[in-house]
Nucleic acid binder design. Structure first.
Lengths: 200, 200, 200, 200
DNA sequence: CGGTAATCGAGACGGTACGTCATGTCTTACA
DNA sequence: TGTAAGACATGACGTACCGTCTCGATTACCG
């Protein structure tokens, strides 16, 4: 189990929703402020006014807790759809708000921990991909499909490859930080990928 | 100081090259086998037949040690240049051997730890970029410059953006593992980026 | 806090009496066998089958632990009172069993460490005096008071000085070991102090 | 070997007297200021501007170094003789200056370490007794012998016992610190021991 | 409405690793 | 040979988390 879900129990005291909220609140605050490695379960428990046992009852690992804690924040900035009329407009409408969201808090530090964990724990890997990547990726896929139907897309284009190229470029700067992740960069990426490198 | 460098001292017992080599050897083996988080300095010291103090004398953190330990392995697979005559050929000649190198060992797990550390330690961030990214990136930049001079490149193309697009796509699958990182994928990325998505 | 005392807590897991006993047992054995300086907390923890953190939770320093560990052994040989009818008899009844206790194990080595520690840590100094010196000293004081009431004591005698003279002589040989601490010596000390040096 | 002595060598570089003096100076200062346990050989070496190897070449342990370092200071206050005409006067002339010397610096802390060490190292024990106790004790013995010849001493008095009684009382307060070591106390001790406790 | 059963807080526990420090030995070059 | 400089193996230090555990005190629901 990677995430916190209510067990469908008959009797017994019901789970405290107050504790659940306090834990996620404390975890999100601490994690983004200090990074996953520098935050202890003891610290989360104290900050949330909760006992460690309560956390471990519902989340198996620190990473699982962090994933839950950050899920909401990311989900907010995931639009249901973007319809601007053009492929270029749709892509920018999708990518720019996301990049703004990324810039708000030091997410990259925590993402590094997610990557590390995912590579040792297949269960976490699925949860991570499912929650933080698939939703946004599916919207982008829909955008490309619509463009294809409108005839805006080169017929040979493989959409999965295109998705990795577009998102990959953004993630690259986001995670490695070798150069700034600006609106201009996002625009340049979209234009470069749409137009292609090769002389025609 | 982020990496191990010989201090230019006059007197005193010289640094033991044997110890240095044993530490890097042990670190590389353990790190790739078990991941950075699951490897203790105690374990590296024992495996290398060396005292912990000796490690800490030369490397300030586990991450710095890992960076040094992995540097050599990556450097081997970094070609001095690639001259196939065409942009497409050059790019594939550069990317494919690298991807093969990545596939040999579970590097992604350690890379996640590097990203995490880099985002809390600017000194480490520079060392990381300088050692593991810049060398390969500069070769790719040269490839693109040559292509531009041959007239193979669309004049408007920004090379820094192009580099992030190409490498970003590969890193994306490498780090997130949401889909396999095959030769076919690399070829598709190159063709997609060269040709562009938009209908012409 | 210098010694291990139960905190008067409401909730929480209760302190393990088994661990407490095992720690004191292991500490006493190791300390007397090898001396305070040559015994590590790691060794005590291992010998007691206990984690180091558990020891540090209840005893702030190695010396404090040693004090607790030796307290019991000394307390056993501290008689509640001694009533032989004469001052000389009372003093011998008090001192001889104590000297026999001292001879059983190499206490002097540990006492040296106590003295060292006491002179850098006033809190430890009080605990040391309170536990290892005051009880026996108070009995001796009572013995002298009784002798005074019986008219056995020179009226000018200051009891505190007399106590230091009697115990001082025994401690002197005990700690410095320049000559053996025999029953004969104890008897001689009592007789010398009672009779005085000066010709009358 | 417990103390630093010049080996009678034929050739080679002679021992540096400057280094020897600097080491003893640094050791004395640091030891009395911070206590034996809190002073490292590295610290002594640095303070003396000397390499650690040089210290270890001449002194086998920290305690041996400390003993040498403190020897001079104690020796100064050891009078060659004391001739006041009376036993009481001689004893006070011997004890009072010594007690004043003891009060100048925190010697008791270091003495505790000496006792500890002596009880694990017979060689050190002899050196300790020989250097710090015997000289003064022999003078006191001479004082008592003279008193005996003058007929001031009770014939039955055993001098070795008397010495332990007198010095023991002073050492007792000095080492255990349960009460102040004043001139008045020393005077009271002498008078008490000379006069005896028992009613006559 | 009282019993049952899961939850919660508090916090002690056995472990494991941390990064630092001191000891005593060694190696090298210089004096 | 003696010394300064300083690297080294060894091993203890005291701290911090981890994940588990034992308590006693709370809740609901269900019979």
């Amino acid at each position: 189990m990677t995430t916190s879900e209510q067990t469908e129990s008959k009797g017994g005291r019901p789970r405290s929703e107050k504790a659940r909220a306090a834990i996620l609140r404390a975890a999100a605050d601490l994690l983004l402020e200090r990074g996953l490695d520098s935050v202890s379960m003891d610290a989360v428990a104290e900050q949330a006014g909760v006992s460690k046992a309560t956390i471990y009852r519902w989340w198996p690992t620190k990473e699982a807790l962090a994933l839950d804690a950050l899920y909401a924040e990311w989900a907010e900035a995931t639009p249901a759809s973007t319809e601007t009329g053009s492929l270029r407009g749709d892509l920018l409408a999708l990518l720019l708000p996301w990049v703004h969201q990324l810039a708000k808090r030091p997410y990259a530090r925590v993402m590094g921990s997610f990557i590390t964990r995912a590579r040792s724990d297949p269960g976490f890997a699925s949860a991570y991909v499912e929650r933080l990547m698939v939703p946004r990726r599916e919207i982008a896929r829909a955008v490309l499909e619509r463009a294809r139907q409108r005839g805006e897309l080169e017929p040979a284009v493989q959409i999965d490859v295109a998705l990795d190229v577009l998102y990959g470029a953004v993630y690259h700067r986001f995670l490695h930080g070798h150069a700034p992740l600006t609106d201009q960069f996002v625009t340049d990426v979209v234009d470069t990928v749409l137009g292609g490198l090769a002389c025609r």
